[in-house]
Simulated assay, not measured.
Amino acid sequence: MLRITNSHIATKNGSFELPDIAVDRGELLVLTGPSGMGKSTFLHWVLGDTIKYVNISGDISLNDVSLKPLNIEQRRIGLLMQDVHLFPHLNVVDNICFALPNGLTGDNGKTLNKNQRRAAAMAMLDKIDLAYVAGHYSEQLSGGERSRVGLLRALANQPKALLMDEPFAALDPQTSVQVSQWAFAQLKARGVPTIMVSHDINNIPPQAQHLDLAKYYRRLT
């Protein structure tokens, strides 16, 4: 479970104190609110980035382990943004291979070699019916394909929690609904606690938690 407590954020324009947050395995919390309020900054704080231009305080724990003393690499939290930055010089399967953890082992307990890692990436693509884009490069993918590959690459790194910042905003409305529903199903099946920033309150799944930051925001006058 991902827990965030006693959180306070102060920007140059205003501040807010959030209620305590608890996101369990496979659950989704959606944050909404006007632009410039600090939603994306909040995600980067949870991720472990150093935030210099905003004052943020609070406690973060994942599976009852405090994340405050851990750096960004140690937190095992993934981030998926609106612009899916796939490596342009690598095809899809190699992008996923790159994301697989170092020292990944097989059923026999031995570390996978290069060919075995590639086979593991192909198996991930095949499992979600994306094997047909394995040899494609980023510029050959549609927006929906790129979003799904981006999510799969994020999950390939085996994060213990995932943060998503407007991940489907660049897609047309119909594709956005289809891809987001697919993504939420993948995250639930894998048991990944997820926090997503969104501007579209109509695209929030009914089972998700919803936190409207505007209710807690106090603008400076």
Score class of each variant (00 low, 15 high):
194 T>A: 00
68 K>G: 08
168 F>N: 05
62 L>I: 15
44 H>V: 01
186 Q>H: 11
58 G>P: 00
27 E>A: 12
1 M>T: 09
12 K>V: 14
11 T>I: 05
51 I>P: 02
211 L>G: 09
105 T>G: 00
59 D>P: 00
216 Y>T: 10
57 S>W: 04
77 I>N: 02
63 N>D: 13
188 K>N: 10
196 M>I: 12
136 H>T: 01
100 L>K: 01
109 G>Q: 08
93 V>H: 07
109 G>Y: 06
40 S>G: 09
206 P>Q: 08
54 V>W: 02
143 G>R: 09
13 N>L: 08
47 L>D: 00
131 A>G: 14
91 N>C: 12
178 Q>S: 11
214 A>P: 01
138 S>M: 05
101 P>W: 03
22 A>P: 01
179 V>Q: 04
104 L>Q: 05
168 F>L: 05
193 P>D: 08
129 D>Y: 07
108 N>S: 06
221 T>V: 07
60 I>P: 01
129 D>M: 08
171 L>R: 14
142 S>L: 10
97 C>Q: 11
15 S>V: 01
1 M>F: 07
219 R>N: 05
184 F>Y: 13
203 N>I: 14
80 L>M: 15
160 K>V: 04
192 V>Q: 04
35 S>G: 10
11 T>Q: 02
214 A>R: 04
124 M>S: 12
54 V>K: 02
27 E>S: 09
87 F>R: 02
63 N>L: 06
208 A>D: 06
182 W>M: 04
40 S>Q: 05
12 K>C: 07
61 S>C: 05
130 L>S: 11
117 R>F: 04
162 L>E: 10
33 G>R: 04
13 N>G: 11
92 V>S: 03
76 R>D: 13
135 G>Y: 13
106 G>F: 02
128 I>M: 12
8 H>E: 06
